[in-house]
């Protein structure tokens, strides 16, 4: 028996099987990726003209709840607001930035409160209490008259993004 030959055959077999194994892992990873159909169904249009002050409207975008809150005059303006004419709106993904529960809106206290771990946010979505590490996330949006299209990034969104005031 030729040891060198066996050694070579062993390495060749190992090499080919290894490459096959890595290729299979890549295929396995790709199989778990979100499907193209899931990714494509990603746009929601919301008409803001129907919103009432201090009343939370909840919509849906990519399976996630979207908070739409028309601010009243006593609520502090914020750079994260969407401004249409005279009106200011807070629009955000309604998932607590701690672990993703949906905070409830308390109109009397004018704040969002998460039941899971007690986190709180103000009417601009800034965290004010508890474990949430960051403000509620503003989804990519584009203003179209009195409507906003979620999923598409307009100039106002890009501006917020570059100012670093939304994730």
């Amino acid at each position: 028996m030729n040891e060198e030959r066996r050694d070579f055959l062993g390495k060749a077999l190992g090499g080919v099987a290894g490459i096959g194994g890595i290729a299979a892992l890549y295929a396995a990873k790709r199989s778990w990726d979100p499907l193209p159909s899931v990714k494509a169904a990603g746009f929601t249009t919301i008409d803001l003209s129907a919103a009432e002050e201090n009343v939370l409207h909840v919509d849906k975008w990519r399976g996630k709840p979207i908070f739409v809150l028309k601010k009243s005059a006593d609520m502090e303006p914020n750079d994260r607001d969407i401004v249409i004419g005279e009106d200011r709106f807070h629009v955000s993904i309604g998932l607590c930035t701690h672990l993703g529960c949906i905070p409830a809106y308390l109109p009397g206290e004018e704040k969002f409160k998460c039941a899971c771990h007690g986190g709180e946010f103000d009417t601009s979505g800034q965290q004010t209490f508890g474990p949430p590490p960051s403000p509620l996330v503003v989804p990519p949006f584009k203003i179209d008259g009195t409507k906003v299209v979620l999923g598409e990034a307009g100039p106002e969104y890009e501006q917020m993004k570059s100012a670093g005031i939304t994730a």
């Binding site: 990726d33 979100p34 899931v38 990519r62 399976g63 996630k64």
Partner: peptide, 16 residues
Amino acid sequence: EWIRGDYVPGDAFLTR
């Protein structure tokens, strides 16, 4: 999103 196969837990998530 990779673990879920979706933005939120959905059909892909349940089946896997």
